[in-house]
Design a protein around this nucleic acid. Structure first.
Length: 576
RNA sequence: CGGGGCGUAGCGUAGUGGCUAGCGCGCCUGCUUUGGGAGCAGGAGAUCGGGAGUUCGAAUCUCCCCGCCCCGACCA
């Protein structure tokens, strides 16, 4: 039983000045967490209890799916990460440190290497597989910009699982088992979420999905088809555009277009000269980027921006990607800034990637690679040929669903879980092999599955809070029942204590506000701010032999007789 | 890393060169009060983020550094 007279808790009347998003603001005000540094938080008792409740649900679902819990250190030696090249590849986000002898260590940002090595150390036969193991562990990432309180921290708790299979079919089964377990877990956590197609990116692997909790303060943007239910992270959005027959398109024609270095100015000139009807969508934008030191042109329709992250994820294998600077243009005198077209790319030694909207046979107005000159009727396949088609244009609400062509909607969300098929990358570089039926050595194939546990605290807070405070699902709240005793006599306090004791005996957790001399208003405000699902008030109505019962979420109030109150409260809790 | 904002008591804040750094919340003592963040009286609590400088005098002006928040870049 949590007695507020002794509970280590101080609620704040004012919003903390450094908290903007609701979950952060309320978790601080209600005394769950305190900030220690950017992206680093301490947990007070109420926060710890809530966090443990979420962990408990996750653990139960992982265990019941047959996954086994293990535990790794956060402090890790350099060598395993050297073997997979991630000591370097992870870049500045890795917390690196040295021991007294000068040996390199890191604080684990994720544990693929350690899991792989653990299995390698124990297993060596196909008969031991499949295997899925998991841990709940603190991760460290030196984020360039921690933000939104606990949503993106530099130290955070994650549940990470890994599956090990002998072949791709086995991996599919393990993946599906995790997917099912995640659905059960997030349902039990009372979260609203969408399962969304993701890009596996540099991690390789064939299949990847994210569990996104819709929320305006989320950092991820995803598309959703209102008709067929297709959902994808914007990076994984697929554009379907058919080829066009260009046999009747007139020949490429260059023209003088003085002083038109921007799409807008070009559209104006076109409309003036050819009697209107032109928009940015008729022009071809050539965005020059440097990818690991290599010059690349990205082609998108003129009315769209390039989404560099989307391009990078879909291209794969690019470490550093940035737009051209003046010094880069200096190396390519054939490129006239503001008048670039893809026609001469081959001659200039530039790789051309086209967004799928630049479909074969489509005709465009674009730069002529000469100052103050543009070209029209520039046809893909005739006047230029992209080296590859890569999704690169920004995704917009209203774009066509790749499954059913219905205009999609766009929403923001917090990424709460991510599952993906890793494949053999880690097993390969760390030599995790087992012998198959024929005694032949086989590289194991892996899956990787994560749930952000501390992030889930914030996401659930974001999805459930209201004007007066936090508002937890019944299984996650610090206590299921919050009993407030009011008045200056002993009777309400003794009565409240008795009900609390009875409820605890029934296995229902109770927070009891037994503070003497604290005014009722303060107690009510605190109860609402803390967000336990059922609030019981023992006070005034005691004269009629009643106690008052409120459901935090709905605000529904009722008076129930004192006799049998505990039983009635228990029934209400069960119904939530 | 680029842009913007900020740093004064546990929290929220006032204070643009001049008295002992002010107020609200919270905290302590006493009395009163007890159904919606109570009242009165008394009190404790601040190296004004740090350092250097300008000045008779600096929270306030200058320079350097540190930290925090927001937008963007970045982020298995």
């Amino acid at each position: 039983m949590l007695r507020m007279s002794t509970l280590f808790l101080r609620t704040l009347r004012d919003d903390p000045a450094d908290a903007e998003v609701a979950s952060h603001r309320l978790l601080v005000r209600a005394g769950y967490i305190r900030r220690i540094g950017a992206g680093i938080y301490s947990w007070l008792p109420l926060g710890v209890i809530t966090l443990r409740n979420i962990e408990r649900v996750i653990r139960e679902e992982m265990d019941s799916a047959g996954f086994q819990e293990v535990h790794f250190p956060s402090l890790l030696p350099r060598e395993p990460y050297e073997a997979t090249n991630r000591w370097e590849e992870y870049g500045p986000s890795l917390f690196r440190l040295q021991d007294r002898k000068g040996a390199d260590y890191l604080l684990g940002p994720t544990h693929e290497e350690m899991f792989t090595l653990m299995v390698k150390g124990e297993y060596s036969s196909y008969k031991d597989l499949p295997l899925s193991i998991y841990q709940i562990q603190t991760k460290f990432r030196d984020e360039a910009r921690p933000r939104s309180g606990i949503i993106r921290g530099r130290e955070f708790v994650m549940k990470d699982s890994y599956s090990f299979d002998i072949d791709d079919a086995g991996l599919d089964v393990s993946y599906q088992k995790h997917r099912d377990a995640y659905i059960k877990t997030l349902d039990r956590l009372g979260m609203k979420y969408n399962i969304v197609r993701a890009v596996s990116g540099a991690m390789g692997g064939s299949k990847s999905e994210e569990f996104l909790a819709p929320c305006p303060t989320g950092e991820d943007t995803y598309v959703l088809c209102p008709s067929c239910g297709f959902a994808a992270n914007v990076e994984a959005m697929v554009t379907k555009v058919d080829s066009v027959d260009s046999s009747t398109t007139p020949a490429l024609e260059e023209m003088d277009t003085p002083n038109t270095p921007t799409i807008d100015s070009l559209v104006d000139v076109l409309n003036e000269r050819f009697g209107g009807g032109f928009t940015g969508a008729h022009t071809l934008k050539n965005v020059m980027v440097m990818a690991d030191g290599k010059a690349i042109a990205i082609l998108v329709p003129g009315d769209r921006e390039v989404d560099l992250k989307r391009f990078q994820e879909n291209c794969g294998g690019i470490h550093e990607l940035r737009t051209f600077e003046d010094s880069d243009f200096a190396k390519f005198p054939g490129l006239v800034k503001g008048y670039i077209g893809p026609q001469d790319a081959k001659a200039l030694g530039i790789t051309v990637y086209a967004d799928p909207r630049i479909a074969p046979g489509t005709s465009w107005v674009t730069g002529a690679n000469k100052i103050n000159r543009h070209a029209r009727n520039v046809v893909n396949g005739r006047d230029f040929t992209p080296d590859a088609y890569i999704e690169a244009a920004e995704v917009r609400a209203g774009d066509a669903c790749p499954e059913c062509a219905t205009p999609v909607v766009i929403d923001r969300a917090i990424e709460i879980g991510h599952i993906f098929q890793l494949g053999r990358k880690y097993a390969q570089s760390l030599s995790l092999t087992v012998l198959d039926q024929n005694g032949k050595s086989q590289v194991v194939t892996m899956g990787s599955y994560g749930i952000g546990v501390t992030r889930a605290v914030a996401a659930i807070a974001e999805q459930t809070y209201d004007e007066i405070g936090l508002n937890w699902p019944v299984d996650l709240a610090p206590a299921k029942v919050h009993i407030v005793a009011t008045g200056k006599e002993d009777l309400p306090f003794e009565t409240a204590d008795a009900i609390a004791t009875e409820l605890e005996a029934m296995g229902i957790s109770v927070m009891l506000d037994d503070r003497r001399g604290t005014s009722p208003g303060v107690k009510f405000k605190d109860a609402e701010l803390i967000g336990n699902p059922v609030i019981v008030v023992v006070g005034k109505s005691l004269e009629q032999g009643n106690v008052e019962l409120r459901v935090r979420r709905t605000g529904d109030k009722q008076e129930i007789p004192l006799s049998g109150a505990a039983r009635a409260i228990a029934t209400l809790v069960e119904s939530l």
